[in-house]
Design a protein around this nucleic acid. Structure first.
Lengths: 100, 100
DNA sequence: TTGTCATATCGAGAAATGTCGATATATTTG
DNA sequence: CAAATATATCGACATTTCTCGATATGACAA
């Protein structure tokens, strides 16, 4: 993994709420209520459910999730009006290999 | 590892130079000139040699290394007027376990 | 003790990030 | 089409971090 990407991931991990989101998404079914649509939490958790759990504003959480997706920590899939976020385990492993 | 420590490590990894230092210290004998004192680079690299390689000011590098030590990424040992820094592999592994 | 060297700490201004409310966009529903 | 809903983006101000030069500290040498 390139240095720039390591740094971008580091920026995401430099904030308590973002680290918690990453942690919660290890077990999305236990940490979030079921999605309104049929989609399982395993495939991704919608922005609203993450926002509610953190207590921060909608715009802040949307910004957080966007930056976590751009650096590769999270994967996003859109379905209608919802965006579903899940961990991107491949990139996380690459990041780990870069620093260990 | 506690959330706060993960975040402090994240802050250290959010800067290009600090990530490079961590990378260089994987192989200190290849990346730094021998220490003036008898101490091997394997046991730690002194601040001056790290500063010279980065090109940043002495005070900046001292601040960087201090924060990397406080969060547990680096280990420091003092010897006379020198401080020697090396990777703290135990904490690095703990950090990795926290995010994977 | 005085001077020199390596490192640490301080104070400051510049730059980046945090976080919000307001608003824009896009999708679905009536 | 109009309204409602979920998410994204914008603009702004507060806070944090970056990075430096200046200075303090502590160890060693003369």
């Amino acid at each position: 993994m390139k240095l720039k990407q390591v740094v971008e991931i580091g920026k995401c991990l430099s904030n308590q709420t973002r680290v918690e989101i990453l942690e919660w998404l290890k077990n999305p079914e236990a940490n979030f209520p079921p999605n309104e649509s049929g989609i399982s939490n395993k495939e991704g958790v919608c922005v609203g459910n993450i926002q509610e759990k953190t207590g921060l504003s909608q715009s802040t959480i949307s910004t957080y999730l966007g930056s976590m997706e751009r650096c590769g920590l999270l994967h996003m899939v859109r379905n209608g009006k919802w965006s579903y976020f899940s961990r991107n385990e491949e990139t996380i492993q690459e990041f780990i290999r870069s620093i260990q």
